[in-house]
Design a protein around this nucleic acid. Structure first.
Lengths: 239, 239
DNA sequence: CGCGACCTTGAAGAACGTCAATGGTCGTGG
DNA sequence: CCACGACCATTGACGTTCTTCAAGGTCGCG
């Protein structure tokens, strides 16, 4: 649970206070909304297990996905300071989340500014990732965008120890990939085939395998600086 | 200078502490970088006068602009917690900025958690705007994107009292509009002509006039919820 | 007056979207 | 165990949006 802490920053024995936070554990089925656009949540949502994503509906039947989240993330930390939610949060797979009351978190921030800063930092990284996605959607080709998404997800999962060699779980449909990158399903499909036939990746049954990291990174123009990883920023596990 | 405070949140007489902050005032010519990608600034930059923008270079000769900033903004507040800058900051016009040392700000946050929270909130709104832009670039047509940009800028300028009736200063070239929305200059030009001939706007010599707010808002599908304006969120001045 | 920065215009083409149909896989229920 | 349906991946044909290239045109300024 407190792997969140090791991700963002080194804390002292204030992790003691963290571990005493009252949590409400909740299981949610795949494909359900957790909180909705316009809502005014009174809790934050720490992801313990599974995958979730954030999105917003635009006009008629169009959807933009902003981010995919992996265990340890608190995707709606922002609701601590923004009263009304400007997007929705939904599950990709079945997920286990821990709800934390805003009041408790605020109290914690007050008593331990170090924790507050770490959380603040976390929301800033969130923003940095948005910028990178924006740049990708605005400037990169479809092929490059998809490759970039794969690089990022692999990198992030690897950082929290959820990569298995050069493979990661990636339970995202082609439609969802399209909605996250501003592409149609059909075009995602065709681009994926190119990535596959170039021997860069394999993607099947919710598992993504990076077959050629340098090659993929080159197609993606992936530079992980925007993820602001604290520590060694170790290069992905494949040798 | 402390109009920043009225924007984000109501502060007590901690505005006293704010006004005692040591500032370094600096004037910068139009079209210059203030801080660069990869830098490790030790100051934050409060914009007092003029317009500036944030951007990142992608691949060969492509550029993504993330945001335009108006007086009162602190565009690189994030550098307080993220050591290395993942994008650049540059002036659109001549600008006057106040540099504030990180240490001083951190100290202030420590002594007045209320200020810290307000600043945090500010960075969260920043992130919210990124999400909206991302959605726009990913899902909206060129016409709609441009209209949306105009709505946002007008709305923000109006909120800080810089709108003059239905006109605002908008010293942005068509190339820069294109770079911010993921469009080519040529296409921006053609789309602008459509907006003009529909009688929605006029844009000349760095001044943008909204001729038909409801019409523009409709084309843009503009919903200001994402700007998280505190107060009455008064509708734009044109009655 | 002339130069540079910006806006405008036309034509051709690439990248990507839409529509529509087919096939694969998996879980569920008969 | 098999059949069915739901969901997802795949394919082809065709259309649109947007890009690229290239050439003027306008305006302000030294």
């Amino acid at each position: 649970v407190r792997k969140l802490e090791s991700i963002t920053d080194l804390s002292i024995e204030e992790r003691d206070a963290l571990s005493r936070l009252p949590l409400i554990i909740k299981e949610i089925r795949a494909g359900e909304d957790i909180v909705r656009y316009g809502g005014r949540p009174s809790h934050c949502c720490l992801l313990i297990e599974g995958f979730i994503y954030r999105y917003k509906l635009i006009g008629e039947g169009r959807r933009q996905i902003f981010s995919f989240h992996t265990p340890g993330d608190i995707p709606d930390l922002q609701s601590l300071h923004l009263k009304v939610l400007d997007h929705s949060l939904a599950t990709l797979t079945m997920a286990k989340v821990a709800l934390i009351q805003h009041d408790h978190l605020r109290n914690l921030n007050f008593r331990f500014p170090g924790i507050g800063n770490a959380l603040w930092r976390d929301t800033l990284i969130d923003g940095s990732i948005f910028r990178e996605w924006m740049a990708g959607i605005g400037q990169r080709s479809a092929l490059s965008r998809i490759a970039h998404l794969f690089c990022e997800i692999y990198f992030r999962l690897n950082a929290v120890g959820l990569a298995d060699g050069h493979s990661i779980p990636f339970p995202v449909t082609q439609e969802q990939i399209g909605d996250s990158l501003g592409l149609s399903t059909v075009h995602v499909n065709r681009s994926l085939q190119k990535l596959r036939s170039s021997g860069l990746i394999t993607l099947r049954g919710g598992t993504l395998a990076i077959e050629d990291w340098p090659g993929l990174q080159k197609v993606a123009e992936f530079d992980p600086i925007y993820l602001h990883q604290e520590v060694d920023a170790r290069p992905p596990g494949l040798q």
